[in-house]
Design a protein around this nucleic acid. Structure first.
Lengths: 158, 158
DNA sequence: GACATATACATAATGCACTGATATAAGTTG
DNA sequence: CAACTTATATCAGTGCATTATGTATATGTC
């Protein structure tokens, strides 16, 4: 328990990191206002903004939801004017989902608001704490890349 | 982009941290299986375990949900045998919510499962990355403490 | 060229977890 | 004791997910 910690795989304080992760998750969720875009909506819009138009099913896979869920989500986004469906002339079964200018604007606005609030929060940390967070960013990116986009196969309860 | 970074309030990469936070949030949510306890359930049980029996309304406040939501949540927890309601002899309007042994066991089991999976994920990072995550833990704790338990007053959209 | 199968999306029915509004019951105060 | 406040429960509605199934289009095989 209180042996010196060398951060190897074996003695990694997974419990603490798990708790921290859940705390952060709840923080983010609590900071979301009703009426805001859902996390999935934001993720889907971000994907569309980053990678360009995308098939509905591919979008579902990449966001880790089922295809019907994505159908509904795209419908909501379309009603809100943030995305549009477009047919694919080469395969008339497919729907290409495009982000609209309004969608891009909504993303930008949301990012700005969240960044502003986060900046405010972070200002209350010590400089050492801020540095430690920045230093952890690459690891976080690696982590989020580790979980495959599709949830089939080896998925397990966490 | 590749200037030396001194992490002051002014030039803190809030956008990046925001993005990382959202990525982590989605990671955690995606790793939750259907049938698992919801995050709110876990948070409520954890609070009960940590601080002992608690009024229903206080629990609602501390988890950042409305009182009806907490009434329902406690009902679910009670049906699942993870918590129980107990009357308060001093004020017969109040309900004291207690965690049960089964609730404690469920928490422990869940923590173990998540820690195991997280360990597996973390094993795929470099040692430097793991160290950076551990180093960021205190900052994360500070951050999660910054957001007050109740959402009234200064709450804003994020 | 026609039929079987696969693929892409939509629709329907359902469930869960939240919200707001309101009811009920129990304390508190003028 | 009436009026008010507090603590919880209940109800209707919403958002976002699920599974199961339907429909249109594509593809492969005989």
């Amino acid at each position: 328990m209180d042996l010196p910690v060398s951060v190897t795989t074996r003695d990694f304080p997974a419990a603490e990191v798990t708790a921290a992760l859940e705390g952060l998750t709840r923080l983010v969720l609590r900071l979301s206002t009703r009426g805001d875009l859902s996390l999935t909506s934001v993720a889907a819009l971000s994907t569309l903004e980053r990678t360009g138009p995308c098939r509905l099913t591919d979008l579902a896979t990449s966001e880790g939801v089922t295809q019907p869920a994505m159908t509904q989500l795209v419908s909501r986004l379309q009603e809100a004017g943030l995305a549009v469906r477009a047919g694919d002339p080469e395969d008339r079964r497919v729907v290409q989902v495009h982000i609209t200018d309004a969608g891009r604007a909504a993303l930008a606005e949301r990012r700005e608001a969240r960044a502003a609030l986060l900046t405010e929060l972070l200002a209350q940390l010590s400089e050492a704490e801020r540095s430690s967070l920045v230093a952890a960013l690459p690891a976080v990116h690696s982590l989020t890349r580790l979980v495959p986009d599709d949830r089939s196969g080896t998925r397990r309860a966490i």
